[in-house]
Nucleic acid binder design. Structure first.
Length: 279
DNA sequence: AAGAAGTCCTGGGCGC
DNA sequence: TGCGCCCAGGACTTCT
């Protein structure tokens, strides 16, 4: 599950590999990578491979940015190629992969950018002005940026009746956390995922924010969690899975106190916590 | 109106 | 052994 540290690791790799390069060709094998899906069965975007290629071919990649879990390949046209990896998406620069849902080639380079994605949730699209893109415009603050207004965030959080786990996964409140780092952050600061936000005190907020920052920074320093399919821009695994305290460890002893870790379902999502360390 | 639940997908793990 | 069931989750839609 690519979350902020995984997407940021990919961003750094892509920026190093692709900044300054010009797109020479585009190959779309799975149309839905461009169109997305909706519950009505109709495509979210009505773009064709031809239209997509027309907007991308001959564009220079100025640099690669990230917003939350979205990757932004900034184009010389002023627009951006936006990508989301969702569950199993991979953006791997190398020889063409036969199973890639999409491939992008660059002038003077034999290798291509492969978009591989077994569960087919991931998407690629082009936005003329990414700041107005419907998927990005409501994203919350970046937790690793100095500009994150923690006290203001805490006030809004403490006004919510939802559970802490759900609130941390809400990208409008804070951008970039997924299930793994949300659970790790809650263990880090000793708060239960089932805890209702309106029971938090003002004193709970700084350790919570610090827990979020610490687990994200740690994940980034190990180049991301490669439990399943996550790979960086060169197809390499991360090592952060070896440093997780609770995710995927239900029924096993807590690394801090030895108590058996418990698993619960919150709004249809699994969460793991230590009943002794987390209050 | 906020919060919960359902939906998309498919490999893997489990039980019988 | 092999089949089938169910789980995993990010973002979006629909329901309550």
């Amino acid at each position: 599950m690519p979350e902020l540290p995984e997407v940021e690791t990919v961003r750094r790799g892509l920026d190093r590999l692709l900044a300054g390069r010009r797109v020479s060709r585009v190959f779309i094998r799975d149309l839905r990578v461009l169109q997305g899906f909706s519950l009505s069965g109709l495509p979210k975007r009505s773009v064709t491979p031809q239209g997509f290629e027309k907007n991308l071919r001959n564009q220079r990649i100025l640099r690669v940015d990230r917003r939350g879990k979205y990757l932004l390949l900034r184009l010389s046209s002023g627009g951006a190629l936006i990508g989301h990896l969702r569950m199993t998406g991979q953006l791997i620069y190398g020889p063409p992969h036969a199973e890639a849902r999409a491939q992008i080639g660059f002038e003077g380079l034999p290798d291509v950018l492969n978009f591989c994605d077994t569960r087919r949730f991931g998407e690629l699209w082009i936005s003329k002005d990414w700041t107005k893109d419907p998927s990005l415009k409501d994203l919350g603050p970046e937790p690793l940026r100095r500009e994150w207004d923690v006290p203001g965030w805490g006030v809004s959080l403490r006004a919510s009746h939802t559970r802490l786990h759900s609130a941390l996964l809400d990208q409008r409140r804070l951008a970039g956390l997924g299930n793994i780092y949300a659970m790790e952050a809650l263990f880090e600061c000793g708060l239960r995922p089932t805890r209702r936000c309106d029971t938090l005190t003002r004193r709970d907020i700084p350790p919570l924010a610090e827990g979020v920052r610490r687990v994200l920074t740690r994940g980034l320093s190990h180049r991301g969690v490669s439990f399943n399919s996550y790979r960086d821009a060169l197809g390499r695994k991360g090592q952060a899975q070896n440093h997780l305290m609770v995710y995927g460890r239900a029924g096993k002893p807590c690394n801090a106190c030895g108590t058996v870790l418990r698993s619960v379902r919150i709004s249809g999502r699994g969460a793991v916590f230590c009943p002794r360390c987390q209050k």
